[in-house]
């Protein structure tokens, strides 16, 4: 037996190991590199444009001059509206699917449905939102139509990620809660949700990102008005739509990049703040005192 164990096989395996480390590291560097280049380029082009006036004043001449204040307002209200509708609904649905529904064929079908829905191009949601909210329900191009359409668009992602996060909470935590006399709802609110929070938040943040970045569905449902809205029934233009129109119509590449820089920075900021708050909350929850 002794002679059959070959040293060169081990050496070959080791070389393969080294090669794979190189390939994998290379992939990671490439992926992050592309991201850094895109974001870096946008900021490099856009940051010089950013001044208090640019942020706080209304556009003039269709955006050729002036600032982007109304589009910042538009982005914030539309995204906030979409998340306020989709997050509670999505998390509630996920709770139902993960904790209450009988895990049979129906649930599998719903799961498959939400997964498919998450992959549908946003323009389809836009056209649906236009036909249903804007025309049929006569909401017109408005914050309401836009927010509801975006909510429908991000809902599947929120449901799927929240459900996965809840299913990943160890069964033994639930058992302990029940064994101490906890009810189902107590077990969900005190054990399942706190432990699923990071996953749930990730789904919501993906939704925020998609809402902020959406153009097609927004143009169809919220319009492209450059005025600051005064009610939920007013149309708005988001930064993404503004960027798209400025670039597409050749109005001002300079201001387009300025808008893009604000977009990128605000998405980063929202993510950062959300995860910071979550970690602080979890640290407090899990015990971090003396």
């Amino acid at each position: 037996m002794k002679g059959t164990w070959r040293r060169d096989v081990i050496l070959l395996s080791r070389r393969r190991d080294r090669i794979m480390v190189g390939v994998l590291t290379g992939s990671a560097v490439l992926a992050v590199g592309v991201l850094v280049i895109i974001v870096g380029y946008v900021l490099w082009q856009g940051l010089p444009v950013l001044t208090p006036t640019f942020l706080l004043e209304a556009p003039e001449k269709m955006g050729r001059a002036g600032g982007i204040f109304p589009t910042i307002v538009g982005t914030v209200v539309l995204t906030a509206g979409a998340v306020l509708v989709a997050a509670p609904l999505g998390v509630a649905t996920a709770i139902y699917l993960a904790e209450y529904a009988h895990q049979g064929r129906t649930v599998a079908l719903i799961r498959f449905g939400t997964e498919s829905l998450a992959g549908i191009p946003s323009i389809i949601f836009g056209v649906f939102g236009f036909l249903f909210f804007v025309i049929y329900l006569d909401m017109g191009w408005s914050i309401l139509s836009g927010a509801l359409t975006l909510a429908g668009m991000i809902l599947p992602t929120i449901i799927r990620t929240a459900e996965e996060a809840m299913l990943a909470v160890p069964r033994e935590y639930r058992e302990v809660s029940y064994s101490l006399g906890g009810s189902r709802w107590q077990t969900i609110t005190r054990v399942v949700l706190p432990n699923a929070l990071p996953g749930i938040l990730t789904g919501i943040m993906l939704g925020v990102g998609r809402s902020v970045g959406e153009t097609a569905a927004v143009i169809f449902t919220a319009g492209a008005s450059l005025r600051v809205p005064h009610s939920l029934f007013d149309p708005v233009r988001t930064m993404s739509v503004h960027f798209y129109l400025l670039a597409r119509e050749g109005i001002s590449m300079r201001n387009a990049y300025g808008t893009a820089a604000v977009l990128v920075l605000s998405v980063l900021a929202v993510n950062f703040v959300a995860y910071y708050l979550m970690h602080r909350h979890l640290a407090r929850l899990r015990g971090a005192g003396r």
């Binding site: 033994e172 302990v176 899990r286």
Partner: peptide, 10 residues
């Protein structure tokens, strides 16, 4: 239970 299973709490 068989495996020590404190909650991830204080």
């Amino acid at each position: 239970f068989q495996r020590p299973n404190p909650f991830p709490l204080s």
